[in-house]
Structure formats: C-alpha cells, structure tokens
Write a protein that binds this DNA or RNA. Structure first.
Lengths: 234, 234
DNA sequence: AACTAGCAAGTCATCAGATAACTTCTCCAG
DNA sequence: CTGGAGAAGTTATCTGATGACTTGCTAGTT
C-alpha cells in the first residue's frame, strides 16, 4: 500500500472509528505525520482527497476539521464533477432526475401551505413575464428549489440542485427554439403548481415527471453546447 | 485564489474546455507546473482532489489521464464517504433509496426475461436456505443488484449499490432479532420476484418500496452498531 | 523474421527542509 | 473594560533530491 493510501485510510479510520466526530479538529500535520508514518507531502495529498469528498476541511492558520458529514457535504462534492460529464452519460442521469423530481413534487403536494403557494405563484408570474434568459433561468431554478424545500429532505434538495445546475449550463432558453421551449416550460410549471395547490400528490408527480421528460427531449434534440460557468463558481 | 485552487480549476478547465477528452493523457507534472504557474506540490494536491472525485487518474511511471467520466466513476466516489455518515443523516438517504429502488424494480418488471427470472429465483432459493449471515448478506445484495441491472441504468445501479453497501455494514441478520428479520425479508423478496415474473411494474415498485421501508424501520428500531469494513475495501 | 533480455528515458511517488501567510490567544497599555 | 501588539501554533507554498515504476528501444539470439 502506498504512503498516500496509508494516510488516506488512516485519516478515514480516525473518523470511522469515532475517535473524531463531526466538527472536531484533527491533530496538526506534524503529529499526523508521526502517527501515520508518512511525509507531510503525502499526508497533505490525502487530506486534500478527503477534502474534495466533503469529509474534512482545512482552514489556513487554524487547523483541519471533520466536516459536518451531512448529506449536503457529501452530495455537494459531485457538483464540480457532474459538469464535466459528456452529454451522453448525463442523459442517463436524467432518468433519475425525473424519478426524484416527481417524488419531491409529490411530497410537496402533501405539505403545501398557502404561504408557499403564494410564493411559488409569484415566482411563476415573474418567470412568465421576463424575456431575459439569465433571469428566466434563475427564476426557473428558484421555482424548483422551493418545491424541493417543501419535500423536507436535504439530500434530495442537494442532489436535484446538482442535476439542475448542469441543465442550466445548456441555456436552453437561449437557442433559436428557445421562445417556444420557454412557452411550453411555462405551461408545465403552471400544471405543477395547480396540482400542488390542490394537494394532489399523484398529479403533481406526473406533472413534474412530464416536465423533466420535456427538458430531456429538448436536450436530446437540440444538443446545445454547454456554456461552462466560471471556474470560481465552486 | 490560492495556488491549489488555481491548479484545481486549471486542470478542470482543461477537461471542461474539451482540450482533453476521456482517456487522454495530461502533460507531465513539470509541464503542468509551468503552465498553471504552481509548484509541484500544489499541482499534485489538485490532481489528488480530482482523482478522489473520479475525474482523473494517475498511474505510477506512466502518466496522468482523464477518466472515462462515466456515471460510475463520478458516483463511485461517494462509496468511501457514505460509510462515514452518522446514522441520522443516513436515514434521510433511505427515502431516496426507497424511491430509486422502487423505480429500478418497476423498470425490471417491464424488461423481465425467463432467463433472468430463473437466475433471480435461484438466488432466492439459496438465500432462503442459508443460515450464514455473511452468505445471506452476499446473496441479498446479489438479488437486488441483478434487478438493478435489468433496469439498464448504470448510474442507478451504482448509486443503489452505494446505499446498499452501507446497509450491509449494519449486519441486520446478525442481531438478536435477526432470525425474524430474515424471515420477513425473505417474504418480501418473494413478493418482489412474483411481481417481476408477472411483468407487473406497479406491484413490483410497491413491493420494493415496502422492502426498503421495512429495512429502514429495522435500522431505526434496533440501531445496530456498524461493523466497519476494512480500510482496504476501497 | 521473430523473439527476448536488458538498457535508457520519461513519469509519478516520496521525502526533507525552509519560508510565508493566516488564525488564535495572551497580555499589556489606555 | 477595551483595543492593539505580539507570540505561538497552524496550514500554504516552494524547492531540491531521490526512489520506483512504466514504456519503448536496442541489440543479441534463435
């Protein structure tokens, strides 16, 4: 086993064994080097690996800590990698997105409140009114995000956010057929909101699934080139 | 922006821009250091980060390459981290597992073949016959894995495998109530298989969801201590 | 011509040491 | 009681050297 593997599994074991719990601080790099019998370089590479995976966190001048280890930390690690996947592999993910988005919307229908309905309605009003692509993309995301929050499952919310962020990079509203796409998208959103307001989980799930399928078909047909977000986005 | 961030986003950009595609080799460390204007140490830490995320791969003595970037590579990165999550956060993931397992089983019902039915039946025969916990756990996993493969979605298969591996670490069959748990689990499996054989997606999905809910309830009630797998398992 | 052993170049892996930058706490002056 | 200077501890970064592994070439043999 290589030195970096030793360090990686050693650090992982410290957490897995319960020696350190979420939020607690690791010993200093020098002490960890002694304990794990690796050089500082190898240790730091292992720390970075676990950092990239959302498991630990280094703070310059302060120390290295176990992350909160909440689903958000773990799933969030995918955010920077999903953007790199070729479209082909991504379409497979859409099947999952459809299923999960349907579930989230179904849950939201069960837990719908008047306040939430008003907020969602206002978002759709603004979305239908705007002609700006970036603003439309932003409002679209906010609409779906708000629905996810009603489902009260942070893992679900984060996972769908990752999927959605990739879709947004394709800027479907900006392509030649964008106007017609947006019109149909607006209709789909209204169908979803109607089902939510009527506390109808089954219809809400169906509407959400149909909406995702719609988006997926547009991506397949038009295959627009992704507009990569700035590297600083992460 | 820190040196490691520069290196990380620089490497990421090389892939995102299409300069290198899956399977291709990066320039040597020295060349990358020149190009990205960071020291070798910083570069290597960035490489490790992307390696941990399943995006790139270093081969000793050969070079550094872009991974296949298939869903399996990206999702697989979660395997080593989900094991570290506290049970509380994990139970939230079970809601997703239920939804996805139901979907996979539903898809499998649509695509069921006689050969697959025979194979699944044989697996269940062996599972019901064995009294060995490890073997039972192994056969249980094989049963669900085979169903996933019928759904023909690699992302789904890998994601559910990650969830399942964590469940396995709890060794539910080994606790005092394990005998009764296994009996009910066996019954659930038969219900799932029956629905699959009858090409009945709706019933199959319901049976799968019920099976996951059952497992989730056992975990909540018994809260067994996880038996951590050896560090070398990764 | 085909095959094999061994050499050579290129690559990543690992270590050690030094310096810079940042955070946190302490303590003293106001 | 407050604010700032300073010390101590930590991570961030760079540099140079050596080890280990892979790959391709070459020369010799069959």
């Amino acid at each position: 086993m290589s030195a970096i593997d030793d360090a990686f599994h050693g650090l992982r074991q410290i957490i897995a064994s319960g020696e350190l719990t979420p939020g607690q601080q690791f010993p200093s790099e020098a002490q960890l080097c002694d304990r794990l019998q690796v050089s500082r370089g190898s240790l730091r590479e292992a720390v970075r690996m676990l950092g990239a995976l959302g498991v630990i966190e280094s703070r310059h001048g302060s120390g290295t800590y176990v992350s909160a280890l909440e689903p958000e930390d773990i799933i969030g690690a995918l955010a920077l990698t999903v953007d790199l996947m070729p479209l082909e592999g991504l379409l497979e993910m859409y099947e999952l997105r459809r299923v999960l988005e349907a579930h989230a919307t179904s849950q939201a229908a069960s837990r719908m409140t008047d306040a939430a309905a008003a907020k969602l309605g206002a978002t759709l009003d603004a979305l239908e009114a705007t002609m700006d692509n970036d603003e439309a993309s932003e409002l679209d995301a906010r609409f779906h995000e708000a629905i996810c929050e009603l489902a009260q499952n942070a893992t679900l919310t984060v996972l769908l956010r990752v999927f959605r962020s990739r879709s947004r990079s394709y800027q479907l509203f900006g392509i030649p057929a964008g106007h017609e796409i947006k019109r149909q998208s607006d209709l789909s959103h209204r169908e979803i909101l109607n089902a939510l307001v009527q506390h109808d989980p089954a219809t809400a799930a169906a509407a959400a699934a149909a909406h995702v399928i719609q988006t997926e078909r547009w991506l397949r047909e038009h295959r627009p080139v992704a507009r990569l977000r700035s590297a600083a986005a992460g």
